[in-house]
Simulated assay, not measured.
Amino acid sequence: MRRVLPLVLALAACTGPEPGPKITGQPEPNQTASATTPPASSAAAGPTLGPAPEDLRSVDWRQATLPAGFCHVGKPVRLSDGTARATSELWGSVEVFLDVDVHYGDVDGDGREEAAISLGCDNGGGTASSQLAFGFAVVRSARGALEVVGEITPTTMRDDATHVPLLSEPKFEKGAITVKELWYRPSDANCCPSGASLTRWWLRDGALKADPPVQVS
């Protein structure tokens, strides 16, 4: 598989980035992450992606069908050896790729694991400047099918950022998933985002919905 960690790809970049859609505003400084009382989680059925085993750890994610809304692709994509060509409503022809790791935990409280699959998309250039977006597709096995719980996307991006934000370290708890967002200040090189925020995504009414991000660096 030709894909490597986003930061490794970034080290090879020597041109300016082609940032994705920008979110107005920037993180508030000196905030401290705080706990919120979780709402009741929902196990409402989501869109299905095909048959699935009870144990998601046995799925070959490099060949899976997964949602790619984080890249503005309207339909799920079928990966082949970890990549797929698709049409983005924002960027046109893109490549969606399995990125880094798959993480497991029980977010809906049914005693079975869900999976958060790290995905990225780019314009096919193969460098950091060609990267367009990153996200997590969260899925579960339900009634013999692979079912979409939701997608996790960056909530923090400065208008003057030099690169699109990265996502890492999803932490599962009952009713929520917390992710770390690594974002760029205007002086940051493509290799090295200096900003970090934590965003908690709650499972509400059968969908994942984000709290405001909390800046940690």
Rank of each mutant, 00 (worst) to 15 (best):
S58A: 07
S58W: 07
V59M: 09
W61L: 10
W61F: 15
R62T: 14
G69E: 10
G69F: 09
F70Y: 13
F70W: 08
V77N: 03
T83P: 00
T83I: 12
R85A: 04
R85K: 12
A86T: 02
T87F: 04
T87K: 10
L90A: 12
S93Q: 14
S93C: 00
V94P: 02
V94L: 06
V96S: 06
L98F: 14
D101H: 15
D106Y: 11
D106C: 03
D108I: 04
R112H: 15
R112S: 11
E114R: 02
E114K: 03
I117W: 10
G120S: 10
D122Y: 02
N123S: 14
G125T: 08
G126W: 01
A133I: 06
A133F: 08
A137P: 08
A137Q: 08
V138M: 05
R140M: 03
S141D: 06
G144I: 11
A145N: 13
L146G: 01
L146P: 00
V148L: 10
V148T: 02
V149K: 08
E151K: 07
P154Q: 09
R158T: 01
D160T: 14
A161E: 06
T162E: 11
L167E: 05
E169T: 14
F172A: 06
G175P: 09
I177C: 07
T178R: 03
K180W: 00
E181C: 04
P186H: 11
D188C: 11
